[in-house]
């Protein structure tokens, strides 16, 4: 009896690759939606010519400016022009910088990423260390104190901690500069100010993760085998607790990269995209606002995609595409 054998398909994507491609497609769609929302918001915010020109500007001046900037064109035409430009990464000329808005944003982005990365490293090192320390001492007085401190830290507004650090460590005891960039010292205070709330949150998550992992049967087996505490911690405990830590840490990095930098960059005059965004909104620089939001969204989506891949590597139990 002959059994027909179906030929294997020539190309077959692995579930992981298919998942990644789906995520990228979803990210692109999300970007387009964000751009559409940005356009709509500026349409309802009011007359951009009246917002830009001085209050004594004559009607002729306003009309000329409106015509020169294309604000008189039909809304659909403006929308099409806007979206077409955005797809080509052409958001127009920044009215305040006098050059292409996307170039202004790309110049500022590395500064924000440096700040966010430094903050993340501080957060991860301090948060994991303190959280682990608290977790292995769960229930002790020291643990309770640390929990209270962590709760306070997680609720401290960044602008407040930033100004307090400036007063304490730049004015009263002038160790660090009050702001600016270009030196390693200038990076310290803004990074520490930004790190305080996520450290508070991470300490809690790590503590809980460590505490619950320590109660697992395999940890009892490890201790009964006579394995040292450090080895047990590194080889078993932290690895098992890594997924929730990476999950929260990744969320914090995403938040830091975009939302968290806005306030701190303004307080410390750090030349990143957060400060750029505030300036653009104050000046009603539509091109710069659009470009900033686009880049910020793209960074967030890229980070989330990378985190997904990291999860799958950390925990083989997380499978994609299987029923």
């Amino acid at each position: 009896m002959t059994t027909a054998v179906l030929a294997e398909p020539r190309t077959r994507l692995s579930p992981t690759l298919a998942h990644i491609l789906r995520r990228i497609g979803s990210a692109v769609l999300t970007l387009l939606v964000v751009l559409g929302v940005v356009f709509l918001v500026f349409q309802v915010l009011g007359d951009p010519a009246r917002r830009t020109l001085p209050i004594n500007a004559s009607e002729e001046q306003v009309a000329s400016y409106r015509a020169a900037m294309g604000y008189d064109d039909p809304v659909l035409e403006q929308f099409w022009r806007f979206m077409r430009g955005a797809v080509l990464l052409d958001f127009g000329q920044s009215t305040t910088a006098g050059r292409p808005a996307i170039a202004v944003v790309m110049d500022a982005l590395p500064n924000s990423l440096l700040l966010a990365t430094t903050t993340f490293v501080i957060t991860a090192l301090v948060g994991i260390a303190l959280g682990t320390w608290a977790g292995v001492r769960a229930g002790t007085t020291a643990d309770r104190v640390l929990q209270a401190v962590g709760a306070f830290a997680s609720s401290v507004p960044e602008f407040w901690s930033g100004l307090v650090l400036i007063i304490a460590l730049a004015v009263t005891v002038p160790i660090f500069p009050t702001g600016g960039s270009g030196t390693a010292a200038a990076l310290v205070l803004p990074s520490v100010a930004m790190a305080i709330p996520p450290i508070g949150r991470l300490v809690y998550v790590v503590r809980e993760s460590v505490r619950s992992t320590m109660a697992e049967p395999f940890m009892l087996v490890a201790r009964s085998k006579g394995l040292g505490s450090s080895y047990t911690l590194r080889a078993h405990l932290l690895r098992a607790a890594a997924v929730p830590i990476v999950s929260v840490g990744g969320l914090e990095l995403t938040r830091l990269a975009i939302g968290g930098v806005v306030v701190i960059e303004s307080v410390f005059a750090w030349p990143g995209i957060g400060r750029l965004y505030v300036q653009a909104m104050q000046r009603y620089d539509i091109a710069l606002v659009s470009a900033t939001l686009f880049v910020a969204t793209a960074v967030v989506l890229a980070l989330n995609t990378l985190l997904d891949i990291l999860y799958m590597k950390l925990d083989p139990r997380i499978e994609v595409g299987t029923p």
């Binding site: 602008f159 400036i166 007063i167 730049a170 500069p177 009050t178 702001g179 600016g180 307080v267 400060r275």
Partner: peptide
């Protein structure tokens, strides 16, 4: 220096 408090702090420092 966008922040008004930071401008004063810079002056005082």
């Amino acid at each position: 220096v966008p922040d008004t408090g930071a401008r004063l702090a810079g002056l005082r420092a």
